[in-house]
Every structure is written in structure tokens, then in C-alpha cells.
């Protein structure tokens, strides 16, 4: 097999392969750290029933939809009560409802958001909870 213009084609192939396999070089076979979410805040520990406003699976995949709906409800429609899964009523409030239990932003919100490169714009308006330690 005779290759013509190999001086240009072979480096071209190499550059292409290296660029396309970039994630492999970055990982170099090392297992990646997975997010470590903690539910051990003082408020959660005091709860009798450790249950969020909606089932865990729903919150895991769709919490951003809930937050968006809450934002629209509170800011645009002045609706400030949310009826949760068991008919329990919650105050529509990020800082005082969500963050009351999940006061550990760096060990809760940030864990998955950083893992997936998500930059939520919650904290451009809301005040981040003060975390001890």
C-alpha cells in the first residue's frame, strides 16, 4: 500500500483522533469522583418524616421544573402556597422552605450541579444560605 501525501494525511489523522478522543486523555482511566449528597442538616435530622415536597425520584430529575413553577407562582401570580404530595401545604419560598432543610448548599446543591456543569441562576437574586464550617 503506497500512501501519497502521507506527510500531510498521517498527521491529519493523528490530530483528528487525538481531538476526538480528548475525554480519554483527560480521564486517563482514573475513576471519576461521584457527587456525595448529604442529608444530615440539623433541620432534616429533627424531622419525623424525612420527606421532601415531592417524591425523591421526582425531585431528583425535576426539581428545577418545580423551582421554576414556584418562581412563576410567587412572582407572577402571587400564589405562595404549594400543596405537596401528601396534601401538606408548603410556603413557596426558596430561601425559607427549600434551604431551611437543605441548608448545606455545598454538600447538596453544588455536588450535582458541579458534577454536571450546571450553573443555576438562583443565587443571582436569592441570598445564598450561610453555612457553618
Amino acid at each position: 500500500m503506497k500512501i501519497y501525501n502521507g506527510d500531510k494525511i498521517i498527521p491529519g489523522i493523528l490530530i483528528g483522533v487525538i481531538i476526538l478522543t480528548f475525554p480519554l486523555w483527560l480521564a486517563r482511566g482514573k475513576a471519576a469522583a461521584t457527587p456525595d449528597i448529604k442529608f444530615d442538616t440539623p433541620v432534616i435530622q429533627k424531622l419525623a418524616v424525612k420527606q421532601c415536597v415531592l417524591p425523591k425520584e421526582t425531585m431528583r430529575t425535576s426539581h428545577m421544573v418545580v423551582l421554576n413553577d414556584w418562581r412563576d407562582a410567587a412572582v407572577r401570580n402571587n400564589t405562595r402556597v404549594f400543596t405537596g404530595m401528601d396534601g401538606k401545604k408548603y410556603d413557596i419560598n426558596l430561601q425559607n422552605t427549600c434551604m431551611e432543610c437543605h441548608s448545606n448548599k455545598t454538600h447538596f446543591c453544588d455536588q450535582c450541579h458541579n458534577y454536571l456543569g450546571v450553573n443555576p441562576y438562583c443565587w443571582k437574586c436569592h441570598i445564598e444560605p450561610k453555612e457553618t464550617k
Binding site: A27, A31, A32, T34, T61, V65, L116
Partner: peptide, 19 residues
């Protein structure tokens, strides 16, 4: 429909790291 992206990233990172 929403998916659990954390689990998905665990799968895709598993592919990348050959684990």
C-alpha cells in the same frame, strides 16, 4: 420526560475511564 443525569454521567464516565 426527564432523566436522572447523575446516573447517566456515572455511566458515561464509566465508558470514558474504561470502568
Amino acid at each position: 420526560t426527564k432523566v436522572d443525569v447523575i446516573s447517566i454521567k456515572q455511566l458515561t464516565m464509566g465508558l470514558v475511564t474504561f470502568h
